[in-house]
Design a protein around this nucleic acid. Structure first.
Length: 528
RNA sequence: GGGUCGCUAGCUCAGUGGUAGAGCAUUCGGCUUUUAACCGACUGGUCCUGGGUUCGAAUCCCAGGCGACCCA
């Protein structure tokens, strides 16, 4: 191994094999013994750096046409994790993996001794005895395609860079236990290439959004996560506490109200891409912390924003997956614009036969809905709420291709501007993809008096115990009183978009570290 | 919140009342063209936790934990 010349002592050190235990503790002990042996032999088991000349994928591409058995006198230096070892008496093959891919190391005793022998005659033996699958090593050598056709680096010199103490999962079956995959995502990432690809795609999606909006002249801003009055959505917040101010604070449930303050302040195109927190249950479609982008454009309306949305997402789908048609869980989804637009009333009428726009009376709407097999209508406080129940129960799931549902009832849209020509409705759209709400946008309510009235209704609900109702944010109203230009806003659930574009069945597959309950409670297990 | 299923070696999994198993990994020996390398030998267990039934429990019963799926 590459080493400093000082300590070239024969390995009179503790052998790695005096543990009779091959369970996890035994493996750790054996590897710690190897760490000691490496040090004893003058090597550094946890190195400081390594000069890499080529990512592995570059080598695979550059020498793709090299014939079996051929060698190139082209010296490279690479680094990565040993994923598999195939060791013979005087020859060994390692599979080395870096971020870009894998390549085989061709490790010949003859060659390594010739190059490293003077420094360490034990170089090849150390390779066999002191390296394990999971270790991170650096290697310098030339390119060779073996007789069996595997592109390899014929190693002249190598060095341990990081000694791994824990065994990798089964090299063939990998790690499949989903709980373990989420709890130890680092192991999942090491052994499951498709998981790495998902998070690469996620990064490309957010980068593409930023690039797209930057080109359109949008400004990325950051607004508070800690708020004294969470608003902008109907959801229960997380509560936290500030010590020196001696006050409760809430983690934001949306970025909406602060972004609108930015618009009031004169920024005409703003967005924020960031984390919001909702104190809700966990499912394949919900994680308590998730990522949204909200964007606001002055002087535009919801038609403008729908046009922007379909164009942007179509472009992202093409960039990230290579096509505007993607396969999601065996279902083809086409992002080619323009997307279908249908009013909420039309959509519900299509599926239930009921025209809710004819109802002015709540009980008549409830009766009709019940007759159509719609549940939970008794608690509805308005025709609009009944319509929404009907939509959620009978329509939502059926919207597989990207679809804009437009013109929502005003009762369920406290921040939207009234529709310019349809009384009782607002200029709002929601985007559905594979049956899931993925985006939500509307012409923003700019009338401060109307806004105050609508938020007061919410505040009253909150006061009477509705935990999801939002409070009245006086400062937001004050901002509107200074005057907000006509504005359209929209939010996209980034995690759900990532799910569709990465073919992930669960939101947990699109979030690197999803929330999980601790595996074991440290507190006493005795019941009370 | 309800229902169904799962939890056994580091990993992937067998094992339905009678001494806890296999493959891979680990350890040891052999091997210069392997790639799920191979051959030989060995090692490795809180059978998720706690109760109960039983002469005897991974297995049956009860409660709990964590997870998956479905429903609300």
């Amino acid at each position: 191994m590459v080493q400093d010349k000082s300590a070239n002592t024969p390995s009179a050190t503790p052998s790695a094999n005096d543990s009779s235990d091959s369970g996890i503790e035994g493996i750790r002990a054996a590897r710690l013994a190897k760490v000691a042996e490496l040090k004893q032999a003058g090597m550094i088991p946890y190195a400081y750096s390594w000069d890499v000349t080529h990512p592995i994928a570059d080598l695979q591409a550059k020498f793709a046409d090299l014939e079996a058995g051929a060698e190139e006198d082209f010296e490279v230096s690479i680094a990565g994790r040993i994923m598999a070892r195939r060791v013979f008496g005087k020859l060994a093959f390692f599979t080395l993996q870096d971020e870009t891919g894998t390549i085989q190391l061709y490790l010949e005793k003859k060659t390594i001794q010739a190059q490293m022998g003077e420094a360490n005659e034990q170089a090849f033996n150390h390779l066999k005895q002191l390296t394990d699958a999971g270790d991170i090593i650096g290697a310098i050598g030339t390119i060779k395609r073996t007789d069996k056709g595997e592109l390899s680096v014929k190693v002249k010199q190598y060095a341990m860079l990081t000694k791994s103490l824990l065994p990798l999962p089964d090299k063939f079956h990998g790690l499949t236990d989903v709980a373990k995959r989420y709890r130890q995502r680092y192991v999942d990432l090491i052994v499951n290439p498709e998981v790495r690809e998902t998070f690469r795609k996620r990064a490309r999606i957010t980068a593409a959004i930023r690039r797209h909006l930057d080109e359109l002249g949008y400004l990325e801003v950051e607004t508070p996560v800690l708020q004294s009055e969470p608003g902008g959505a109907e959801a229960r917040p997380f509560v936290t506490y500030h010590n020196t101010l001696d006050m409760e604070l809430y983690l934001r449930i949306a970025t909406e109200l602060h972004l609108k303050r930015m618009v009031v302040g004169g920024f005409e195109k703003v967005f924020e891409l960031g984390r919001v927190f909702r104190n809700e249950g966990v499912s394949t479609r919900h994680n308590p912390e998730f990522t949204t982008i909200e964007m606001y454009q002055a002087y535009g309306d919801y038609q403008d924003m729908m046009a922007l949305t379909e164009k942007m997402i179509e472009q992202i789908a093409e960039e990230v997956t290579g096509s505007s048609t993607v396969s999601y869980q065996q279902e083809l989804v086409s992002f080619a614009a323009p997307w279908k637009r249908i009013t909420m009333h039309e959509a519900v009428q299509e599926k239930t036969g009921i025209d809710f726009s004819q109802f002015t009376d709540l009980s008549a709407a409830q009766k009709a809905a019940k007759a159509a097999g719609i549940d939970n209508v008794d608690d509805c406080e308005s025709v609009g709420h009944v319509l929404n129940e009907a939509f959620e129960q009978k329509v939502e799931e059926t919207l597989r291709q990207p679809t804009f549902v437009i013109d929502y009832p005003i009762e369920i849209s406290p921040l939207s501007k009234p529709h310019r020509s349809k009384p009782g409705l607002v200029e709002r759209f929601e985007l559905f993809i594979v049956g899931r709400e993925t985006a939500n946008g509307f012409s923003e309510l700019t009338d401060p008096v109307d806004q105050r009235e609508r938020l007061e209704i919410q505040a009253a609900k909150k006061a009477s115990g509705d935990l999801e109702a939002v409070g009245l944010d006086e400062d937001f109203i004050t901002a509107l009183e200074y005057g907000m230009p006509p504005t359209v806003g929209m939010g996209i659930g980034i995690d759900r978009l990532v799910m569709v574009l990465t073919d992930s069945a669960s939101i947990r597959d699109a979030i690197a570290f999803p929330l999980l309950k601790p595996e074991k409670s440290d507190s006493a297990s005795s019941a009370s």
